[in-house]
Computed example of a mutant assay.
Amino acid sequence: MSDRATNFDCFDFERRLADALDADSLLPSGAKVLVGVSGGADSVALLVAMHSLARRGRNFELVVAHLDHGLRAESSADAEFVAELSAGLGVECFIVRQDIASLAQQLGEGLEQAARLARFEFFRDTAQQCGAGAIAMGHHADDNVETILFRILRGTAWRGLAGIPACRQDGQLRIIRPLLGFRRAEILNYCRSRDLSWREDITNAQTIHRRNFIRNELLPSIRERLNPQVDEALLRLGSLAGETERFLRSLAREALGNSVVLAEGGKMIIDAKMLAACDRIVRTTAYRLALTELGMPQRNLTAEHLSQIDALLQAPSGVVNLPANFHARREQSLLLITDN
């Protein structure tokens, strides 16, 4: 799909993208970058704009990855579109087809979550195989608005309120989202001005999925009935929450530095009395940091788990079983966090 836009400055769009990539060294110089491309306007704009920057002397190399999830009759055509787009740009493209419906049954997950997990695993494996040090994703500001609102409704902490991170580490890989400062309308205008085609996912209009309900029904209703500037308000909230989370993490790192007795071999031993002197919110942030350092996946770690660990500081003994076979245990004056 394409529809040429007028009076849109594509070079300014690409300059802002370059600024986003430079911010906080989002993309190291000389990096090889895997761009996740679904065929939608967001990922097409990201690929084409990054390719334009690379041609104008930016020091990075691009490869493309696309997961054909087989959930729609059009998914094969989406894959063909991405392959042709990549070939036209002279960019190497990796495509794989996976039965997401079967995977969802195996994992006991919904289709959306199973597709998300499979897509990221494919991107990560492909990046490692081709020597890419970063994975670029096409999430934008409107995605962030939806994410923040969804997390508010579901229940979340500061980290969740901060929304989608512009950058995060996954082992040796850096996951970057340089379009987070762009609205969806800007991205569409860039595509139209560049006379680019893209694929439309017709299921995005179906409100049976929670994200689509938020996008297509809840947010429009809030804009009409409560606050026409709700998008900006949620993005401000996310920015403030991100600043708060970063401050808490700095306090938690300092608390761990003062209270950790030993950290090696899949375990961390903490002076319970020393850590107990900190505020509770700093302590619970410290537990999350400690578990992250020990390699525990954060997806299933809940506020209840953190509260249970914190209760051990007031108990002479006890054990808390955590996801992924991790444990927290109180022994005399020590708090032990281990991966077995």
Rank of each mutant, 00 (worst) to 15 (best):
R168I: 06
G181Y: 07
M137L: 12
R97K: 15
Q105T: 12
T156P: 09
L226S: 13
F326L: 02
P178H: 06
E232A: 09
L219C: 05
F247H: 06
L71N: 03
R194E: 01
A277F: 08
D339I: 03
D271K: 02
H51Y: 08
A263Q: 10
A185E: 10
D170H: 11
Q332M: 11
A18I: 03
Q106W: 07
A45Q: 01
V91A: 02
E232S: 07
Q298Y: 11
E245C: 13
Q332R: 15
E254H: 09
V48M: 02
A132Q: 04
L85Y: 10
E200M: 10
G155A: 03
P178Y: 03
S38F: 00
L17K: 06
L334I: 07
N258A: 13
H139R: 04
N212L: 03
R116M: 08
A286W: 01
R192W: 14
D12S: 10
I202A: 15
E293P: 04
G133L: 12
I309S: 04
L47D: 00
L256S: 12
R72L: 11
S333W: 12
L291A: 07
I208H: 12
R4M: 05
L107K: 10
E14I: 07
Q314F: 15
I202F: 15
V319W: 06
Q169C: 11
A41R: 03
N7Q: 10
E109G: 03
D195G: 09
E331P: 09
E74M: 07
A311R: 14
R283N: 09
R58P: 04
D22K: 04
A114N: 05
C191R: 01
N216L: 05
L334S: 09
L322I: 09
D99V: 00
L334G: 11
A20N: 10
R215T: 00
R159H: 12
R124N: 05
R72W: 13
E74G: 14
L219S: 03
D271M: 01
L21V: 05
H140F: 03
L256F: 15
R168M: 14
S250Y: 12
R253M: 05
C191M: 03
D170V: 02
L188V: 10
C93E: 00
D279N: 08
R151G: 04
R97M: 13
F213L: 06
G138Y: 11
F326K: 00
Q129T: 15
P178N: 05
M137Q: 06
S75D: 08
D22A: 03
A79H: 13
L103H: 11
Q298P: 14
D3S: 12
A83S: 11
P297G: 07
D9S: 14
I187F: 02
